[in-house]
Simulated scan of single mutants.
Amino acid sequence: MSLSAVIRKDFEDSIRSFSLLSTTLLFVVFATGLAAIQWIPVMYRDSAVDASTLALLNSMRQPTVFMIPLIGFVLAYDTIIREQDRGSLRLLLGLPNSRLEVVFGKFIGRTGVITVSILVGYTVAGVIALVTYESFDFVVFSRYTLLTVLYGAVYIAFATGFSAAMKSRQQAFVGAGALYSLFLVGWDVLLLVLQLAIYGQNIPETGLPDWFKFIGLLNPSTAFMHAVRAVIPEYSAITFYPQGSAFYLDDWVGFVILAVWATLPLVLGYLRFERADIQ
């Protein structure tokens, strides 16, 4: 049994457990509802990109940032540890498969699930926009869709890494929930606490230093926004972040940060899984 077989098995398991179907239906409902919102903020009615397309992206911005990580964690937080609880992990490893193949096969399989769900849901939204909007930029929306898939893959990596590293589903669930809270709620709080600890209530006249702004960019959700801005420059009209002169604050750095976040949890999870005693 090879890596491709692990991927295929995991994807087929998601079909049998209705994970693929339920996630896809969720994305269809989510994207369809947002596609029906055609309010166009004044700030970018004269944009070079089709205003209706930007209106749709504006509607999807915050729900995407919060919803994709949640679905990614739910889909993959127990993808490996569940096999151990059921007693099927030893069988999976004895076919034979290396532990590396199991970890990365599970990651790719679950990424396939969220990819199919996003593509189906966003395709439905695109068709609705194409039929009902006065105009619609298919290319821009396609880029945003692919970037959303990348964003989802990052959180699948987080969850898979936790599933490989933890000793129980409860630990994996708590760890995934803690990370979700940190990235989506706690990061800004930590930045505020750090700012108050260093500068108090008096921000320097020149503004916060570039290194401080970079800490904000390290959040994968913020990195996703910067990556979108790098590919869709007009997206800057609906997102605002402090400007800096350092190269590491450029929008393209968002891709680097997402790549690091997608790799690090998998590597750490695998290293812990490789040393684990499988019962």
Rank of each mutant, 00 (worst) to 15 (best):
S4F: 13
R8Q: 15
E12K: 12
I15A: 10
L21C: 03
T24I: 10
L26N: 12
A31R: 10
T32L: 09
A35E: 02
I37Y: 06
P41C: 00
A48Y: 10
A55Y: 00
A55G: 04
M60A: 13
R61M: 14
R61I: 04
Q62L: 15
P63K: 09
P63C: 10
V65E: 13
I68H: 01
V74N: 03
T79H: 00
L89C: 11
G94S: 12
N97F: 04
S98E: 05
R99P: 02
F104G: 00
R110C: 08
V113L: 08
V116G: 10
I118F: 02
L119P: 06
L119H: 01
L130I: 04
S135R: 11
F136Y: 10
F138E: 13
V140G: 10
F141R: 13
S142G: 15
Y144H: 15
T145G: 05
T148Y: 05
V154N: 00
F158I: 12
T160F: 13
S163W: 03
M166Q: 14
A178K: 14
S181F: 15
S181L: 15
G186P: 07
A197Y: 12
I198G: 09
Y199L: 05
Y199V: 02
Y199R: 02
G200M: 11
Q201E: 13
N202M: 09
I203S: 11
T206D: 11
G207L: 00
G207W: 05
W211M: 06
K213S: 14
N219W: 10
P220W: 03
T222I: 10
M225G: 08
A227R: 02
V228S: 01
R229A: 15
V231M: 13
P233C: 13
Y241I: 08
P242L: 09
Q243F: 07
G244H: 05
A246R: 09
A246E: 15
W252G: 01
V260N: 04
W261F: 15
T263K: 15
P265A: 07
L266H: 00
L268F: 07
F273N: 05
R275E: 13
I278A: 09
Q279L: 07
